[in-house]
Amino acid sequence: MTAPLLETRALTRNFGALLATREVDFRLDAGARHALIGPNGAGKTTLVNLLAGVISPTRGQVLLKGRDITGVGQAERVKLGIARTFQINRLFRGLSVLENVYIAVAERMGVAPSMFRPAGRRTDVVNESMHLLDTLRLTADAGRRVSELPYGRQRLVELAIALALSPEVLLLDEPAAGVPSAESHIILDAIDRLPPEIAVLIIDHDMDLVFRFAQRITVMVSGAVFASGTPREIGADPEVRAVYLGQTARG
């Protein structure tokens, strides 16, 4: 078996006395569709923050393709191919949808430090941004200010920015959170259509989404990995049912 794409070894993080992540051994394979579930406060977002390099672990390692990236910062990890979305939108709200994506594309293509050519003349960046908006069916909104969009479409822009980075690893922190159910299909469709070569880790509370999407599920409870397996195994695991899935479980 080859080295996993992204891996953690005994990853531990505490905030004061609180052990937010304890001894987590986790692996994400290339092209995976992996879901991370668990009750509120289980440490799912903390794990994503550790993987993305937003915070550094108290102990343990993060490895990308076998290389230790524990000490690598957030911005550099993006260059290595790890992108993420946020549970609560972090968008450039006063800018247009196109500009939001442009910023990310320009950053990936190394164009962002350039000072003298007008941004709009960089047709390579513009074309690529427009193409991406097209695949997410955001073209019609390209010129609109993000803050004017309905929330569901804002979530789509959140996803577009991450995809603009051409990641190998995509970490989705509750991509459909806060989206009214009438709009949530937009997000679910977009997730279904993610390029198969990207390894996707998704946190979500929507079990329909998780069981439809994931090939593998990891359950976290109080900062530690409680169980990991295929959707069938997880759905059938009585202990998982007891701590988390409860009545809403299906398998």
Binding site: A52, V54, G73, Q74, A75, E76, V78, K79, A83, R84, F86, R90, L91, F92, R93, G94, L95, E99, Y102, I103, A104, A106, E107, R108, V111, A112, P113, S114, M115, F116, R117, P118, A119, G120, R122, V125, I161, A162, A164, L165
Partner: peptide, 27 residues
């Protein structure tokens, strides 16, 4: 010239959401 360049665009990104910028790989 500067504010209409990609550099200027990335400055507006910092202004609009400084927390997002490292997550798109910006130093």
């Amino acid at each position: 010239t500067l504010v209409y360049s990609p550099f200027g665009q990335s400055l507006t990104g910092i202004r609009e959401n400084i927390l997002r910028m490292p997550a798109v790989g910006a130093p």
